[in-house]
Nucleic acid binder design. Structure first.
Lengths: 212, 212
DNA sequence: AGTTTTCCATACGCTTGCGTATTGACAATC
DNA sequence: GATTGTCAATACGCAAGCGTATGGAAAACT
Protein backbone atom coordinates (compact mmCIF):
# COMPACT_ATOMS: atom_id res chain seq x y z
CA UNK A 1 0.00 0.00 0.00
CA UNK A 2 2.89 2.30 0.66
CA UNK A 3 4.07 1.43 -2.76
CA UNK A 4 4.79 5.08 -3.68
CA UNK A 5 1.74 5.16 -5.92
CA UNK A 6 3.01 4.71 -9.41
CA UNK A 7 -0.19 5.32 -11.30
CA UNK A 8 -2.11 8.28 -9.96
CA UNK A 9 -2.27 9.62 -13.47
CA UNK A 10 -0.04 9.42 -16.49
CA UNK A 11 2.04 12.34 -15.33
CA UNK A 12 4.78 9.98 -14.35
CA UNK A 13 5.24 8.30 -17.68
CA UNK A 14 7.50 11.23 -18.47
CA UNK A 15 9.36 13.17 -15.85
CA UNK A 16 9.66 16.33 -17.91
CA UNK A 17 7.62 18.05 -20.59
CA UNK A 18 8.51 18.89 -24.15
CA UNK A 19 7.02 21.43 -26.61
CA UNK A 20 4.75 18.78 -28.09
CA UNK A 21 2.97 18.37 -24.76
CA UNK A 22 2.32 22.08 -24.60
CA UNK A 23 1.11 22.22 -28.18
CA UNK A 24 -1.34 19.38 -27.69
CA UNK A 25 -2.75 20.91 -24.53
CA UNK A 26 -3.04 24.20 -26.37
CA UNK A 27 -4.98 22.63 -29.21
CA UNK A 28 -7.33 21.17 -26.66
CA UNK A 29 -8.04 24.64 -25.33
CA UNK A 30 -8.40 26.11 -28.80
CA UNK A 31 -10.81 23.38 -29.81
CA UNK A 32 -13.13 24.07 -26.91
CA UNK A 33 -12.69 27.72 -26.00
CA UNK A 34 -10.90 29.44 -28.83
CA UNK A 35 -7.53 31.05 -29.26
CA UNK A 36 -8.28 33.95 -26.95
CA UNK A 37 -8.76 31.47 -24.11
CA UNK A 38 -5.20 30.24 -24.42
CA UNK A 39 -3.62 31.45 -21.19
CA UNK A 40 -0.16 30.36 -20.26
CA UNK A 41 -0.84 29.83 -16.59
CA UNK A 42 -4.04 27.91 -17.28
CA UNK A 43 -2.39 25.45 -19.59
CA UNK A 44 0.49 25.11 -17.19
CA UNK A 45 -1.97 24.08 -14.52
CA UNK A 46 -3.44 21.45 -16.83
CA UNK A 47 0.02 20.04 -17.38
CA UNK A 48 0.73 20.13 -13.66
CA UNK A 49 3.48 22.72 -13.78
CA UNK A 50 3.80 26.52 -13.58
CA UNK A 51 4.77 29.32 -15.91
CA UNK A 52 8.42 28.80 -15.16
CA UNK A 53 8.34 25.69 -17.26
CA UNK A 54 6.56 27.30 -20.16
CA UNK A 55 9.03 30.08 -20.73
CA UNK A 56 11.78 27.56 -20.94
CA UNK A 57 10.17 25.82 -23.94
CA UNK A 58 8.66 28.83 -25.71
CA UNK A 59 9.58 32.47 -26.01
CA UNK A 60 6.05 33.78 -25.56
CA UNK A 61 2.34 33.03 -25.89
CA UNK A 62 2.18 33.75 -29.60
CA UNK A 63 5.04 31.36 -30.21
CA UNK A 64 3.05 28.61 -28.53
CA UNK A 65 -0.09 29.26 -30.53
CA UNK A 66 1.73 29.39 -33.83
CA UNK A 67 3.47 26.11 -33.07
CA UNK A 68 0.19 24.50 -32.05
CA UNK A 69 -1.53 25.63 -35.23
CA UNK A 70 1.28 24.27 -37.33
CA UNK A 71 0.92 20.93 -35.61
CA UNK A 72 -2.83 21.01 -36.22
CA UNK A 73 -2.43 21.77 -39.88
CA UNK A 74 0.18 19.10 -40.45
CA UNK A 75 -1.83 16.39 -38.79
CA UNK A 76 -4.96 17.44 -40.60
CA UNK A 77 -3.22 17.30 -43.94
CA UNK A 78 -1.97 13.85 -43.10
CA UNK A 79 -5.49 12.58 -42.48
CA UNK A 80 -6.79 14.08 -45.72
CA UNK A 81 -4.01 12.50 -47.72
CA UNK A 82 -4.49 9.10 -46.17
CA UNK A 83 -8.26 8.90 -46.16
CA UNK A 84 -9.49 11.14 -48.99
CA UNK A 85 -6.91 11.88 -51.63
CA UNK A 86 -6.00 8.21 -51.82
CA UNK A 87 -9.43 7.35 -53.26
CA UNK A 88 -9.32 7.09 -57.01
CA UNK A 89 -12.94 7.39 -58.07
CA UNK A 90 -13.86 11.08 -57.77
CA UNK A 91 -17.45 10.34 -56.71
CA UNK A 92 -16.28 8.11 -53.93
CA UNK A 93 -13.56 10.58 -53.05
CA UNK A 94 -16.09 13.36 -52.57
CA UNK A 95 -18.36 11.09 -50.62
CA UNK A 96 -15.48 10.09 -48.38
CA UNK A 97 -14.71 13.74 -47.79
CA UNK A 98 -18.28 14.48 -46.75
CA UNK A 99 -18.29 11.53 -44.41
CA UNK A 100 -14.99 12.59 -42.90
CA UNK A 101 -16.34 16.10 -42.50
CA UNK A 102 -19.23 14.86 -40.43
CA UNK A 103 -17.09 12.90 -38.01
CA UNK A 104 -16.68 14.51 -34.59
CA UNK A 105 -12.96 15.13 -34.83
CA UNK A 106 -11.03 17.63 -32.76
CA UNK A 107 -9.61 18.91 -36.00
CA UNK A 108 -13.02 20.22 -37.04
CA UNK A 109 -13.61 21.87 -33.71
CA UNK A 110 -10.33 23.66 -34.05
CA UNK A 111 -11.15 24.85 -37.52
CA UNK A 112 -14.49 26.16 -36.32
CA UNK A 113 -12.99 28.13 -33.47
CA UNK A 114 -10.21 29.47 -35.67
CA UNK A 115 -12.86 31.01 -37.87
CA UNK A 116 -13.79 32.85 -34.72
CA UNK A 117 -10.41 34.24 -33.71
CA UNK A 118 -9.25 35.35 -37.09
CA UNK A 119 -8.65 38.89 -35.89
CA UNK A 120 -5.16 37.72 -34.99
CA UNK A 121 -2.93 37.82 -38.02
CA UNK A 122 -1.20 34.54 -37.27
CA UNK A 123 -4.57 32.83 -37.11
CA UNK A 124 -5.94 34.32 -40.29
CA UNK A 125 -2.76 33.35 -42.09
CA UNK A 126 -2.96 29.64 -41.41
CA UNK A 127 -6.71 29.72 -41.84
CA UNK A 128 -6.44 31.22 -45.28
CA UNK A 129 -3.83 28.72 -46.34
CA UNK A 130 -5.80 25.73 -45.12
CA UNK A 131 -8.99 26.94 -46.75
CA UNK A 132 -7.31 27.53 -50.07
CA UNK A 133 -5.78 24.07 -49.97
CA UNK A 134 -9.08 22.42 -49.26
CA UNK A 135 -10.94 24.37 -51.89
CA UNK A 136 -8.33 23.33 -54.39
CA UNK A 137 -8.62 19.62 -53.86
CA UNK A 138 -12.38 19.84 -53.80
CA UNK A 139 -12.30 21.70 -57.07
CA UNK A 140 -10.05 19.03 -58.48
CA UNK A 141 -12.56 16.38 -57.46
CA UNK A 142 -15.31 18.09 -59.37
CA UNK A 143 -13.10 18.61 -62.38
CA UNK A 144 -12.32 14.91 -62.29
CA UNK A 145 -16.03 14.28 -62.48
CA UNK A 146 -16.26 16.42 -65.57
CA UNK A 147 -17.13 19.89 -64.36
CA UNK A 148 -15.65 22.86 -66.17
CA UNK A 149 -13.08 24.81 -64.21
CA UNK A 150 -15.49 27.57 -63.26
CA UNK A 151 -18.32 25.19 -62.50
CA UNK A 152 -15.99 23.09 -60.38
CA UNK A 153 -14.80 26.22 -58.60
CA UNK A 154 -18.29 27.30 -57.69
CA UNK A 155 -19.30 23.82 -56.70
CA UNK A 156 -16.26 23.47 -54.45
CA UNK A 157 -17.09 26.72 -52.72
CA UNK A 158 -20.62 25.50 -52.27
CA UNK A 159 -19.54 22.17 -50.86
CA UNK A 160 -17.01 23.73 -48.55
CA UNK A 161 -19.54 26.27 -47.35
CA UNK A 162 -21.79 23.42 -46.40
CA UNK A 163 -18.96 21.95 -44.36
CA UNK A 164 -18.18 25.17 -42.54
CA UNK A 165 -21.81 25.99 -42.04
CA UNK A 166 -22.62 22.59 -40.64
CA UNK A 167 -19.77 22.86 -38.18
CA UNK A 168 -21.22 26.03 -36.80
CA UNK A 169 -24.77 24.77 -36.75
CA UNK A 170 -23.89 21.85 -34.56
CA UNK A 171 -22.00 24.06 -32.14
CA UNK A 172 -24.59 26.81 -32.14
CA UNK A 173 -27.69 24.68 -31.72
CA UNK A 174 -26.02 22.20 -29.44
CA UNK A 175 -28.86 20.87 -27.31
CA UNK A 176 -31.89 21.21 -29.49
CA UNK A 177 -30.24 19.82 -32.54
CA UNK A 178 -32.41 16.75 -32.70
CA UNK A 179 -30.58 16.13 -35.86
CA UNK A 180 -27.64 14.64 -34.00
CA UNK A 181 -29.17 11.20 -34.07
CA UNK A 182 -29.24 10.74 -37.81
CA UNK A 183 -26.14 12.46 -39.02
CA UNK A 184 -25.79 9.67 -41.51
CA UNK A 185 -29.10 10.57 -43.09
CA UNK A 186 -28.04 14.18 -43.37
CA UNK A 187 -24.75 13.24 -44.96
CA UNK A 188 -26.63 11.17 -47.50
CA UNK A 189 -28.96 14.06 -48.13
CA UNK A 190 -26.06 16.46 -48.64
CA UNK A 191 -24.17 14.04 -50.80
CA UNK A 192 -27.25 13.50 -52.92
CA UNK A 193 -27.54 17.22 -53.48
CA UNK A 194 -23.91 18.08 -54.03
CA UNK A 195 -22.39 15.05 -55.72
CA UNK A 196 -23.72 14.54 -59.21
CA UNK A 197 -22.59 14.78 -62.82
CA UNK A 198 -22.21 18.28 -64.21
CA UNK A 199 -25.19 17.99 -66.52
CA UNK A 200 -27.84 17.89 -63.84
CA UNK A 201 -26.78 21.29 -62.60
CA UNK A 202 -29.15 23.00 -64.99
CA UNK A 203 -32.24 21.43 -63.52
CA UNK A 204 -35.07 23.80 -62.83
CA UNK A 205 -32.96 26.88 -63.28
CA UNK A 206 -35.71 28.34 -65.39
CA UNK A 207 -38.21 28.48 -62.61
CA UNK A 208 -35.63 29.93 -60.28
CA UNK A 209 -33.91 32.48 -62.41
CA UNK A 210 -37.01 33.66 -64.16
CA UNK A 211 -37.38 37.33 -63.45
CA UNK A 212 -41.01 38.21 -63.09
CA UNK B 1 -14.60 83.06 -39.32
CA UNK B 2 -15.00 83.15 -35.61
CA UNK B 3 -18.41 81.73 -36.21
CA UNK B 4 -18.05 79.15 -33.45
CA UNK B 5 -17.72 76.34 -36.07
CA UNK B 6 -21.07 74.70 -36.22
CA UNK B 7 -20.16 71.72 -38.35
CA UNK B 8 -16.89 70.12 -37.33
CA UNK B 9 -18.61 66.78 -37.26
CA UNK B 10 -22.09 65.60 -36.47
CA UNK B 11 -21.36 65.42 -32.79
CA UNK B 12 -23.25 68.61 -32.28
CA UNK B 13 -26.54 67.49 -33.76
CA UNK B 14 -27.19 66.13 -30.31
CA UNK B 15 -25.65 67.57 -27.21
CA UNK B 16 -25.92 64.38 -25.19
CA UNK B 17 -25.86 60.68 -25.94
CA UNK B 18 -28.51 58.04 -25.38
CA UNK B 19 -28.29 54.25 -25.09
CA UNK B 20 -29.10 53.84 -28.78
CA UNK B 21 -25.89 55.65 -29.71
CA UNK B 22 -23.86 53.31 -27.54
CA UNK B 23 -25.57 50.24 -28.93
CA UNK B 24 -24.96 51.24 -32.52
CA UNK B 25 -21.32 51.98 -31.89
CA UNK B 26 -21.06 48.63 -30.12
CA UNK B 27 -22.55 46.77 -33.07
CA UNK B 28 -20.01 48.44 -35.28
CA UNK B 29 -17.23 47.04 -33.13
CA UNK B 30 -18.82 43.61 -32.96
CA UNK B 31 -19.23 43.50 -36.72
CA UNK B 32 -15.56 44.15 -37.34
CA UNK B 33 -13.68 42.83 -34.34
CA UNK B 34 -16.01 40.60 -32.38
CA UNK B 35 -17.61 40.75 -28.99
CA UNK B 36 -14.37 40.36 -27.09
CA UNK B 37 -13.13 43.58 -28.66
CA UNK B 38 -15.94 45.55 -27.08
CA UNK B 39 -14.12 47.74 -24.57
CA UNK B 40 -15.96 50.45 -22.74
CA UNK B 41 -13.23 53.03 -22.92
CA UNK B 42 -12.60 52.40 -26.61
CA UNK B 43 -16.22 52.91 -27.59
CA UNK B 44 -16.39 55.93 -25.36
CA UNK B 45 -13.52 57.43 -27.30
CA UNK B 46 -15.33 56.77 -30.57
CA UNK B 47 -18.33 58.62 -29.24
CA UNK B 48 -16.14 61.44 -28.00
CA UNK B 49 -16.77 60.94 -24.31
CA UNK B 50 -15.27 58.98 -21.41
CA UNK B 51 -16.29 56.08 -19.22
CA UNK B 52 -18.15 58.37 -16.89
CA UNK B 53 -20.84 58.75 -19.51
CA UNK B 54 -21.14 55.04 -20.16
CA UNK B 55 -21.84 54.02 -16.60
CA UNK B 56 -24.62 56.50 -16.47
CA UNK B 57 -26.48 54.81 -19.36
CA UNK B 58 -25.60 51.18 -18.62
CA UNK B 59 -24.86 49.20 -15.52
CA UNK B 60 -21.93 47.29 -16.98
CA UNK B 61 -20.29 45.99 -20.13
CA UNK B 62 -22.47 42.92 -20.41
CA UNK B 63 -25.56 45.08 -20.19
CA UNK B 64 -24.35 47.05 -23.19
CA UNK B 65 -23.62 43.99 -25.28
CA UNK B 66 -26.94 42.35 -24.52
CA UNK B 67 -28.79 45.52 -25.45
CA UNK B 68 -26.80 45.84 -28.67
CA UNK B 69 -27.54 42.25 -29.63
CA UNK B 70 -31.21 42.75 -28.98
CA UNK B 71 -31.18 45.75 -31.28
CA UNK B 72 -29.38 43.74 -33.94
CA UNK B 73 -31.86 40.91 -33.76
CA UNK B 74 -34.89 43.16 -33.89
CA UNK B 75 -33.66 45.06 -36.90
CA UNK B 76 -32.66 41.87 -38.65
CA UNK B 77 -36.07 40.35 -38.12
CA UNK B 78 -37.63 43.46 -39.51
CA UNK B 79 -35.67 43.17 -42.74
CA UNK B 80 -36.54 39.50 -43.12
CA UNK B 81 -40.21 40.18 -42.64
CA UNK B 82 -40.26 43.03 -45.10
CA UNK B 83 -38.14 41.59 -47.85
CA UNK B 84 -38.48 37.80 -47.63
CA UNK B 85 -41.51 36.61 -45.76
CA UNK B 86 -43.70 38.98 -47.72
CA UNK B 87 -43.06 37.04 -50.94
CA UNK B 88 -45.87 34.62 -51.67
CA UNK B 89 -44.36 32.17 -54.17
CA UNK B 90 -42.07 29.84 -52.16
CA UNK B 91 -39.55 29.51 -54.99
CA UNK B 92 -39.22 33.25 -55.28
CA UNK B 93 -39.17 33.56 -51.51
CA UNK B 94 -36.20 31.23 -51.24
CA UNK B 95 -34.46 32.97 -54.08
CA UNK B 96 -34.99 36.32 -52.41
CA UNK B 97 -33.51 34.95 -49.22
CA UNK B 98 -30.40 33.73 -51.02
CA UNK B 99 -29.97 37.09 -52.68
CA UNK B 100 -30.41 38.90 -49.40
CA UNK B 101 -27.88 36.56 -47.82
CA UNK B 102 -25.27 37.53 -50.35
CA UNK B 103 -25.63 41.25 -49.82
CA UNK B 104 -22.81 42.87 -47.81
CA UNK B 105 -24.90 43.92 -44.84
CA UNK B 106 -23.56 44.70 -41.41
CA UNK B 107 -26.12 42.29 -40.06
CA UNK B 108 -24.30 39.38 -41.70
CA UNK B 109 -20.95 40.49 -40.39
CA UNK B 110 -22.37 40.57 -36.91
CA UNK B 111 -23.81 37.11 -37.24
CA UNK B 112 -20.48 35.78 -38.44
CA UNK B 113 -18.56 37.26 -35.54
CA UNK B 114 -21.16 36.09 -33.04
CA UNK B 115 -20.50 32.56 -34.20
CA UNK B 116 -17.02 33.28 -32.99
CA UNK B 117 -17.72 34.58 -29.53
CA UNK B 118 -20.31 32.08 -28.50
CA UNK B 119 -18.35 31.07 -25.42
CA UNK B 120 -20.26 33.83 -23.68
CA UNK B 121 -23.65 32.59 -22.58
CA UNK B 122 -25.50 35.75 -23.53
CA UNK B 123 -24.11 35.48 -27.04
CA UNK B 124 -24.90 31.82 -27.52
CA UNK B 125 -28.41 32.44 -26.28
CA UNK B 126 -29.36 35.02 -28.89
CA UNK B 127 -27.43 33.11 -31.51
CA UNK B 128 -29.36 29.94 -30.87
CA UNK B 129 -32.69 31.75 -30.98
CA UNK B 130 -31.89 33.53 -34.22
CA UNK B 131 -30.66 30.37 -35.86
CA UNK B 132 -33.71 28.39 -34.85
CA UNK B 133 -35.99 31.12 -36.18
CA UNK B 134 -34.22 31.20 -39.50
CA UNK B 135 -34.18 27.44 -39.87
CA UNK B 136 -37.88 27.39 -39.21
CA UNK B 137 -38.88 29.80 -41.90
CA UNK B 138 -36.54 28.13 -44.35
CA UNK B 139 -38.09 24.79 -43.54
CA UNK B 140 -41.51 26.32 -44.07
CA UNK B 141 -40.43 27.52 -47.50
CA UNK B 142 -39.45 24.03 -48.53
CA UNK B 143 -42.62 22.55 -47.15
CA UNK B 144 -44.56 25.11 -49.16
CA UNK B 145 -42.77 23.79 -52.22
CA UNK B 146 -43.91 20.30 -51.40
CA UNK B 147 -41.10 18.75 -49.37
CA UNK B 148 -42.01 16.37 -46.59
CA UNK B 149 -41.31 17.67 -43.12
CA UNK B 150 -38.11 15.73 -42.68
CA UNK B 151 -36.90 16.47 -46.19
CA UNK B 152 -37.67 20.14 -45.69
CA UNK B 153 -35.82 20.07 -42.40
CA UNK B 154 -32.69 18.61 -43.90
CA UNK B 155 -32.86 20.91 -46.86
CA UNK B 156 -33.22 23.95 -44.63
CA UNK B 157 -30.18 22.93 -42.65
CA UNK B 158 -28.30 22.48 -45.87
CA UNK B 159 -29.35 25.86 -47.21
CA UNK B 160 -28.56 27.61 -43.98
CA UNK B 161 -25.20 25.92 -43.76
CA UNK B 162 -24.41 27.32 -47.17
CA UNK B 163 -25.25 30.76 -45.89
CA UNK B 164 -23.11 30.48 -42.80
CA UNK B 165 -20.29 28.86 -44.67
CA UNK B 166 -20.27 31.46 -47.37
CA UNK B 167 -20.09 34.20 -44.77
CA UNK B 168 -16.95 32.72 -43.36
CA UNK B 169 -15.39 32.01 -46.70
CA UNK B 170 -15.60 35.61 -47.76
CA UNK B 171 -14.09 36.82 -44.50
CA UNK B 172 -11.44 34.14 -44.39
CA UNK B 173 -10.21 34.38 -47.94
CA UNK B 174 -10.69 38.12 -48.14
CA UNK B 175 -8.10 39.20 -50.67
CA UNK B 176 -7.67 36.20 -52.91
CA UNK B 177 -11.35 35.56 -53.25
CA UNK B 178 -11.45 36.34 -56.95
CA UNK B 179 -14.98 35.24 -56.61
CA UNK B 180 -16.00 38.61 -55.29
CA UNK B 181 -16.60 39.97 -58.75
CA UNK B 182 -19.36 37.62 -59.76
CA UNK B 183 -21.30 37.03 -56.60
CA UNK B 184 -24.40 37.05 -58.72
CA UNK B 185 -23.18 34.05 -60.66
CA UNK B 186 -22.49 32.19 -57.47
CA UNK B 187 -25.91 33.00 -56.09
CA UNK B 188 -27.45 31.65 -59.28
CA UNK B 189 -25.32 28.56 -58.97
CA UNK B 190 -26.36 28.00 -55.39
CA UNK B 191 -29.99 28.68 -56.11
CA UNK B 192 -29.89 26.24 -58.98
CA UNK B 193 -28.54 23.58 -56.65
CA UNK B 194 -30.70 24.21 -53.63
CA UNK B 195 -34.02 25.41 -54.97
CA UNK B 196 -35.89 22.71 -56.82
CA UNK B 197 -38.97 20.52 -56.48
CA UNK B 198 -38.72 17.68 -53.98
CA UNK B 199 -38.65 14.97 -56.65
CA UNK B 200 -35.25 15.77 -58.10
CA UNK B 201 -33.60 15.06 -54.78
CA UNK B 202 -33.20 11.43 -55.64
CA UNK B 203 -30.97 12.07 -58.63
CA UNK B 204 -27.86 9.94 -58.75
CA UNK B 205 -28.18 8.79 -55.19
CA UNK B 206 -27.43 5.28 -56.38
CA UNK B 207 -23.94 6.05 -57.50
CA UNK B 208 -23.26 8.02 -54.37
CA UNK B 209 -24.77 5.91 -51.68
CA UNK B 210 -23.71 2.60 -53.11
CA UNK B 211 -21.65 0.87 -50.49
CA UNK B 212 -18.92 -1.10 -52.14
C1' DA C 1 -32.81 82.81 -8.87
C1' DG C 2 -32.33 78.65 -6.74
C1' DT C 3 -32.75 73.77 -6.93
C1' DT C 4 -32.81 69.40 -9.10
C1' DT C 5 -31.80 66.39 -12.85
C1' DT C 6 -29.07 64.97 -16.50
C1' DC C 7 -24.87 63.91 -18.47
C1' DC C 8 -19.98 63.57 -18.34
C1' DA C 9 -14.73 63.98 -16.51
C1' DT C 10 -11.26 62.54 -13.45
C1' DA C 11 -9.10 59.68 -10.27
C1' DC C 12 -8.73 55.47 -7.99
C1' DG C 13 -8.85 50.44 -6.74
C1' DC C 14 -8.90 45.86 -8.35
C1' DT C 15 -8.25 41.70 -11.24
C1' DT C 16 -6.19 39.17 -15.03
C1' DG C 17 -2.58 37.74 -17.56
C1' DC C 18 1.95 38.39 -19.88
C1' DG C 19 6.82 38.34 -19.45
C1' DT C 20 11.28 38.47 -16.48
C1' DA C 21 14.47 37.41 -12.83
C1' DT C 22 16.08 34.52 -9.64
C1' DT C 23 16.67 30.35 -7.41
C1' DG C 24 16.39 25.36 -6.90
C1' DA C 25 16.18 20.31 -7.86
C1' DC C 26 17.35 16.51 -10.44
C1' DA C 27 19.89 14.18 -14.09
C1' DA C 28 23.76 13.71 -17.13
C1' DT C 29 28.38 14.07 -17.89
C1' DC C 30 33.25 14.38 -16.81
C1' DG D 1 31.95 13.29 -6.54
C1' DA D 2 32.01 17.77 -8.73
C1' DT D 3 30.24 20.32 -12.54
C1' DT D 4 27.13 21.35 -16.04
C1' DG D 5 22.68 21.24 -18.31
C1' DT D 6 17.75 20.62 -18.06
C1' DC D 7 13.38 21.67 -16.38
C1' DA D 8 10.48 23.91 -13.01
C1' DA D 9 8.86 27.03 -8.73
C1' DT D 10 8.43 31.53 -6.84
C1' DA D 11 8.30 36.32 -6.81
C1' DC D 12 7.97 40.52 -9.11
C1' DG D 13 6.92 44.32 -12.50
C1' DC D 14 3.75 45.97 -15.71
C1' DA D 15 -0.23 47.00 -18.82
C1' DA D 16 -5.15 46.53 -20.02
C1' DG D 17 -9.62 46.91 -18.77
C1' DC D 18 -13.68 46.82 -15.61
C1' DG D 19 -16.22 49.10 -12.16
C1' DT D 20 -16.68 52.85 -8.40
C1' DA D 21 -16.47 57.31 -6.19
C1' DT D 22 -16.75 61.87 -6.54
C1' DG D 23 -17.24 66.22 -8.44
C1' DG D 24 -18.75 69.52 -11.95
C1' DA D 25 -21.29 71.83 -15.67
C1' DA D 26 -25.33 72.65 -18.17
C1' DA D 27 -30.11 72.16 -18.75
C1' DA D 28 -34.70 71.68 -16.83
C1' DC D 29 -37.79 72.59 -13.54
C1' DT D 30 -40.17 75.52 -9.69
Amino acid sequence: MIKQNKAINDANKKKSLNPKDWEKATLEVIANQGVSAVAVETIAKVLGVTKGSFYWHFTNRKDLIVAALKRWRDEDNKVIRQRVLSVNDPYERLKTWFILSSEPLQSHLIYATLLADRQHSYVSKVLKEVTVDRLNYLQQCYQDIGYSETQARQQSILAYSVYVGYLHMTKTLHGQFKHDNNVDDYVKHVAGQLIHPPESVSIDLTSVNAKK
